[in-house]
């Protein structure tokens, strides 16, 4: 049973007289518990796809079914609830709240999620128990991304959405973060969707979706995905 289904989804951005089709009749089906990588060059529409799935944006036409529910017509409040309960985000630039400590950044989700996981436990799992009281600006990029992963998973979402999660990190740190992301997602049995233009990450995925000019070029399952150690970074 697919957890995500895109049915003829189009997203058109209008700016003055210009129209830009970011997604053009996309049909896509993603299974639960898989590690999916969306690959494509800049401007291909992969972030648009992620934003629509994450409930940050509405499609111009078409349907997006998550768990059998069509989220494309949701109101702003229902979408907020959807984001709170169903999806977790990990961004390229972490997007932590600078005025909250590590603990507070993660504990924040308890304000909106009824079944949030224990923040301290999540922070321990990303190995930052010693940094509970520090502010984001006092952490390295890799550490900040780990907080962001802890925060995303603390919401106990069904789907973890990651937009270039290692894009702002050096390759060594990137690998560490990626490994952590994958192992935690697997431990908690989450579906994980990573948008990237890094081909290496794609080699670790269960499913690779290639996007170009707003269309899905291919959607292939990999029978034997590589582990992080096996990938030549």
């Amino acid at each position: 049973m697919p957890i995500v289904e895109f049915k003829d989804v189009t997203r058109v951005y209008t700016s003055g007289d210009h129209e830009l089709k970011a997604l053009d009749g996309v049909n896509l089906s993603l299974d639960e518990g898989k590690f999916i990588v969306v690959l494509g060059p800049s401007g291909a529409g992969k972030s648009t796809l992620l934003n629509l799935l994450g409930g940050l944006d509405n499609p111009t036409s078409g349907k997006i079914l998550v768990n059998g529910q069509d989220i494309s017509g949701y109101s702003s409040d229902t979408l907020a609830d959807y984001r709170a309960s169903t999806v977790g985000f990990v961004f390229q630039f972490y997007n932590l709240i600078p005025t909250l400590t590590v603990y507070e950044n993660v504990a924040l989700v308890k304000q909106i999620c009824a079944d949030a996981l224990d923040p301290e436990d999540m922070i321990a799992r990303v190995g930052l128990s010693d940094h509970l009281e520090q502010f984001p600006a006092e952490l390295s990029g890799g550490e900040q991304q780990r907080v962001s992963i802890a925060r995303a998973l603390a919401k106990n979402p069904k789907i973890l959405l990651c937009d270039e999660p290692t894009g702002a990190l050096d390759s060594q740190t990137g690998v560490v973060v990626l490994k952590l992301l994958l192992s935690m997602a697997r431990d908690f049995g989450k579906t994980i969707v990573i948008v990237t233009h890094n081909q290496n990450i794609a080699r670790m995925a269960d499913v690779v979706v290639r996007v170009k000019n707003g269309r899905i070029v291919s959607c292939e399952s990999q029978a034997h995905p590589l582990s992080a150690e096996e990938v030549d970074w």
């Binding site: 409040d77 907020a80 609830d81 984001r83 709240i97």
Partner: peptide, 16 residues
């Protein structure tokens, strides 16, 4: 605005 957007992404409602 960046912090507010983050809260929105996390699932905070506009009213909150």
């Amino acid at each position: 605005s960046r912090e507010l957007a983050t809260l929105k992404v996390l699932g905070f409602r506009d009213r909150q």
